[in-house]
Design a protein around this nucleic acid. Structure first.
Length: 789
DNA sequence: TTGCAGTAGATACCTTTGTTTCTT
DNA sequence: AAAGAAACTTTGGTATCTACTGCA
């Protein structure tokens, strides 16, 4: 179709496109249909071109791919169509350009090189090439999340136990000797009524002294043998954890702390004990480093981009430190006595939050947990993470609701003390910090922010409260979008259609006004006469709880057009009725002949998009409740009885068949002499322990297995018979009857069986029908008569 | 080197009451 | 003749998340 276009056109287009690229004017967004088309390497292109020529050497021109240039729209947008994609179209000239996908202009440098995919076998190869290499599978994703949570839980419990060790009375009394009387007084200053800050000042001085004392006391600081408690990358879980410190028991722990020997973690923990020995309310604070579950890179890509973090960078920021309650300032004071050797009263940012690329790779501050001396456990990440809501939150398991509940449960389980005033003060401080964090200044952080939302990120069924004002603006460098409005999330209202509200047992109030009108999602489903493609949405304030009409005195219930009553929530049951859920409820209600309504409690969605109602029970007047329940019990009972009888009958039938076959066999043996049986190790007839029912692997029939009665020419599935024999001949006897046959031909068939088959079929064809699944009762009877049974 | 807007691709979620033909 | 079983049908739009790219 484009064969008529002269070459100059292409060059013109190419030129225009290149200019447009430079200007970076993005009109309507160009779509790339399939990456593999544009990404295919030149080699591929050439190869395929050659192949095409070979394949289509009869075609008039070398039109390998048709390229349609739409000159009218957008002044030079090029649209390509690939032969392979529309091979059925057979070069239809009348193809409308709208049918083609717009393709990004990246590959128009080589317009003469035409990319094309011909061989179907090649397609998956292309797909694999362009498939994401660095994203792990869904399963792996879940696994990582699980490991993250498990790891975190272990750390939480470990912290709790370690915190208990710190309360050891012997340890505390010995450590208390390290603190001179003067310093002790500084740590417990008198309250200055006029200027509480002065008391705080004294406390801080005392703490500084303590820190100095501790640094003198701690003589030997061991190097971490591996990476200590810092964060591991995912590929490091597959390696052997060599050099991980041997389990440290309580005794050794106390001994080492008193001696002042150990790694940085131990030093920090010991410092907490030191402060507790001075009767201060000191917290053991741990920044936990479970692996990053939001990092979805595969192990290969991880190891390729393995980031080497130097030891010094890694230990720059601590994982263990200390907090002391300042009762004058009603704040927690943070002390890191080892790594940064700092004391701080955190206002908006902490020095302990890792900064810079390298340290952050091994130390992502996400979960900071404080354990106090009364076995209280609290999540105090807020104090240390400057951008908790916009950045840190995304790396935490609490980023979704499920994870948050899990985490809260874990913390709750480890918090062994009642709430105190100190917690109130701290929560107030956290609220203050949340408020101070303010609005993010970039798009990424505004996504899923707990407090703010961009106007453009509002869902289709969401609106901002009518009189709410925007709380700020986000200025983008991009000239196209300019300034975006940001609202507080609490001003967002979720809307639902009338039908959706009905599913929650609510109906629109009279005179309710719709808040928003959207296009219906599935136009295709809606009937032809239902040309209303708009969906009106309402807020919860526009609705009220649905009160279904009461049943009449005779128990008559108002039903819908389908003859049902919908009970999606309990409030949708009429007040004087009840819902009885049972698979046989409808049957029971019918049986006793009362007024009832089948209850639709939900829908099931099957393929083909058709949904079907779930009729899980009936709604009846409360008067009939007992009657229906009794009837249901009766029906269930009788069903059970029937099942039992059926089972019994089936079993008896199988036995009957079996015995019949034995008779046939013995009769045949009498007439024609015994077939070689000596080689068969287990002859079912003579097996003494052969009793009871025998369930085969492939058949669900209960009863004796008949496959081993070769002489009776049991009509069997050859395949299943072979499989059975395979199973049994090699495995242990499974009890009961064993179709063991050791003679096999190369084809895997049983020689013996074949022989006997032939033998038998020659003698009596009609018996072929016997014993198999096809035989009917009449035939059995006939045969039994023949056998004079 | 780092941060970030924009984008593509993958995945998850929402959907919320058939019809025709044959057999018993 | 009526009732019931069986076969046929085999979406698709939107939201959300993540990695990647190119730019500053």
């Amino acid at each position: 179709m484009d064969g008529d276009l002269p070459k100059e056109y292409f060059e013109l287009i190419r030129k225009t496109l290149n200019e447009k690229k430079r200007e970076a004017v993005s009109g309507r967004p160009l779509k790339r249909k399939k990456r593999r088309n544009t990404r295919s390497t030149t080699e591929d292109v050439q190869n395929s071109s050659v192949e095409v020529i070979d394949l289509e050497s009869n075609s008039n021109d070398v039109q390998l791919a048709t390229e349609v240039i739409d000159l009218d729209s957008g002044g030079g947008e090029a649209i390509t169509m690939l032969n392979s994609e529309v091979s059925e179209d057979q070069h239809d000239d009348s193809v409308d350009s709208d049918e083609f996908e717009d393709v990004e202009d990246t590959d128009f440098e080589n317009l003469n090189d035409i990319s094309i995919t011909i061989n179907k076998e090649e397609k998956p190869v292309h797909k694999n090439k362009t498939a994401r290499k660095n994203v792990c599978s869904n399963e792996e994703r879940r696994k990582r999340k699980f490991i993250h949570m498990f790891y975190l839980l272990c750390l939480l419990i470990n912290g709790f136990l370690r915190n208990e060790w710190l309360n050891n009375s012997k340890l505390l009394s010995r450590l208390g000797d390290l603190i001179p009387e003067k310093v002790f007084e500084q740590l417990h200053p008198r309250k200055d009524e006029d200027m509480p800050l002065r008391s705080t000042r004294k406390l801080l001085d005392g703490l500084k002294k303590c820190m100095e004392i501790w640094n003198k006391h701690w003589r030997i600081t061991k190097r971490y043998e591996s990476i200590g408690c810092y964060m591991r990358f995912w590929d490091e879980f597959d390696e052997k954890w060599s050099g991980y410190s041997q389990s440290l028991n309580k005794k050794m722990f106390i001994k080492n702390v008193l001696k002042g020997v150990g790694d940085r973690d131990l030093a920090a923990q010991g410092f907490v004990a030191l402060l507790r020995s001075c009767n201060l309310n000191a917290r053991l604070v741990i920044s936990m480093q479970p692996p990053d579950f939001t990092n979805l890179r595969t192990l290969e890509s991880l190891s390729n981009s393995a980031v080497n973090v130097s030891y010094d960078d890694m230990i720059k920021y601590p994982l263990f430190w200390c907090e002391v309650w300042d009762k004058f300032g009603k704040k927690w004071i943070t002390i890191d006595p080892i790594n940064l050797k700092t004391i701080e009263q955190i206002r908006n940012a902490s020095k302990l939050e890792p900064r810079g690329g390298a340290p952050k790779r091994r130390n992502q501050l996400r979960y900071v947990i404080g354990y106090d001396r009364k076995q209280g456990t609290r999540d105090i990440t807020r104090r240390y993470a400057q951008w908790l809501n916009s950045k840190t939150r995304k790396k935490r398991i609490t980023k979704d609701k499920e994870g948050e509940e899990w985490f809260n449960r874990a913390i709750y389980a480890l918090n062994r003390r009642k709430r105190t005033k100190i917690d109130d003060y701290e929560d107030a401080y956290f609220d203050q910090r949340n408020a101070n964090e303010g609005m993010p200044d970039n798009l990424q952080d505004l996504k899923n922010h707990p407090y703010y939302i961009l106007e453009r990120d509002l869902g289709k069924n969401q609106i901002i409260k009518p009189n709410a004002k925007e709380s700020g603006y986000l200025k983008l460098n991009n000239r196209v979008h300019g300034v975006l409005k940001v609202y507080e999330r609490k001003n967002v209202i979720n809307l639902k259609s009338g039908k959706q509200w009905y599913m929650e047992g609510r109906v629109l109030k009279t005179g309710a006004r719709c808040k928003k009108v959207i296009r219906k999602k599935n136009v295709r489903l809606s009937n032809i006469d239902d040309d209303n493609e708009e969906e009106r949405l309402y807020s919860i304030d526009d609705t009220e709880i649905y009160r279904p009409p009461l049943a009449s005195a005779f128990g008559e219930i108002t039903k819908n057009t389908f003859g049902n009553i919908e009970v999606f929530v309990p409030s949708m049951i009429p007040a004087n009725c009840c819902l009885i859920e049972s698979p046989v409820a409808i049957k029971a209600a019918k049986f006793i002949g009362i007024e009832f309504a089948p209850a639709v409690t939900g829908f099931k969605f099957e393929r083909g998009k058709r949904s079907k109602p779930i009729l899980s029970g009936v709604v009846v007047s409360k008067l009939y409740r007992e009657a229906v329940e009794t009837a249901i019990a009766g029906i269930e009972n009788s069903i059970e009885e029937d099942e039992r009888k059926g089972f019994e009958l089936n079993a008896l039938e199988q036995w009957n068949k079996f015995l019949l076959k034995l008779r046939i066999k013995s009769q045949l043996n009498q007439v024609y002499g015994t077939v070689v049986e000596a080689e068969k190790k287990s002859v079912p007839v003579e097996t003494p322990e052969a009793g009871g029912f025998f369930v085969t692997g492939s058949e669900s029939v209960v009863g004796p297995n008949i496959s081993n009665l070769n002489d009776c020419n049991v009509e069997m599935n050859d395949g299943s018979a072979t499989n059975l024999s395979d199973q049994y001949s090699e495995g242990e006897p499974m009890g009961g009857f064993l179709p063991v046959s050791t003679e096999r031909t190369k084809n895997g068939n049983f020689e013996e069986k074949q022989e006997s088959d032939n033998e038998f079929s020659n003698n009596d064809e009609s018996s072929n029908e016997f014993g198999g699944t096809k035989g009917t009762d009449d035939e059995y009877e006939d045969f039994m008569n023949d056998m004079e049974l």
